[in-house]
């Protein structure tokens, strides 16, 4: 561990990862509580398409990530209030968006072939060790922003998530809160993509929150536990991949989160 800490790339991964995990644990708790896990799944796939479109167009990958995830999150929110779209509508939309992603991937690998096809795999499965100093700073700042926003909104959002009708009757702007939360979830998905990749972000969003909900029924305790578990999972995952170099960090983080979830499932009431 001590030798691993002396490498700058490991320090960057630790710093950015901690901030990202904290944000995703908080956002993930509300995502699970509001039964919007499938939306999180969708945002992961949208992140891939956004990143590929940005690369194919020659822009910074992160620009595409954030634009696509926040845009689609708001689109889903808008569809949600008018026509109550269920998982089927979301699924139809995102399977097409994913198809577009493969189109951009081909466009990118054929027309900008100097860097070849690895970019697709990096976006899909993440490269937390590949973050440089400026990317780490940006990731930490954005994660801090998401964390602050979720903590500020936590009380009304909790009320609106647990009982939307009563919350609306008591004057809580439930629809605006829902839309704002979706935008936060989109930003969070774009952040997590940089750590563990767009396909695996669901693990960091859903698993710690699911574990926390299994262990306690009290909302604030579960919220804190979810964030703490996400950070601990990430640390344990990074430590594991430092000890066993054959394991990619994305895999070891997912392995730890899934193990925690399975353990809570077995010991839980």
């Amino acid at each position: 561990m001590i030798t691993a800490l002396s490498h700058p790339f490991f320090l960057h991964a630790l710093l950015a990862g901690t901030a990202i995990a904290l944000a995703s644990g908080l956002v993930g708790y509300f995502l699970v509580l509001r039964a919007q896990t499938f939306t999180g799944d969708t945002l992961g796939h949208v992140a891939f398409t956004g990143a590929m479109a940005a690369l194919a167009g020659g822009y910074d990958l992160r620009l595409g990530l954030f634009a696509a995830t926040i845009g689609v999150a708001l689109l889903l929110g808008a569809l949600g209030r008018r026509g109550r779209p269920d998982d089927v509508v979301i699924g139809t939309l995102f399977s097409w968006i994913l198809g577009l992603g493969t189109f951009f991937l081909t466009l990118y690998t054929t027309h900008r072939s100097s860097t070849q096809g690895n970019a697709g795999i990096t976006v899909l499965f993440g490269s937390i060790y590949g973050l440089d100093a400026t990317q780490t700073t940006t990731a930490v700042l954005i994660a801090a922003g998401i964390t602050t926003a979720v903590l500020l909104l936590a009380r009304p959002l909790l009320f609106a998530s647990l009982d939307e009708a009563v919350a609306a009757a008591r004057g809580v702007p439930a629809t605006a809160l829902g839309l704002g939360f979706l935008a936060l979830a989109g930003a969070c998905a774009a952040e997590v993509t940089q750590a563990v990749g767009s396909l695996l972000l669901l693990g960091l969003l859903a698993a710690p929150a699911g574990t926390a909900i299994r262990l306690t029924d009290r909302p604030y305790r579960a919220l804190g536990l979810s964030a703490a578990l996400a950070v601990l999972d990430l640390w344990a995952g990074l430590a594991l991949s430092a000890q066993v170099p054959v394991l990619p960090p994305s895999f070891s983080i997912m392995a730890v989160t899934a193990t925690c979830y399975a353990a809570a499932h077995l010991v839980g009431p």
Binding site: V32, L33, T37, A206, G210, A258
Partner: peptide
Amino acid sequence: VAVESAATGTVQAF
């Protein structure tokens, strides 16, 4: 539904 979908999501990511 909430816990169930968290379980499905965890299986998928793992």
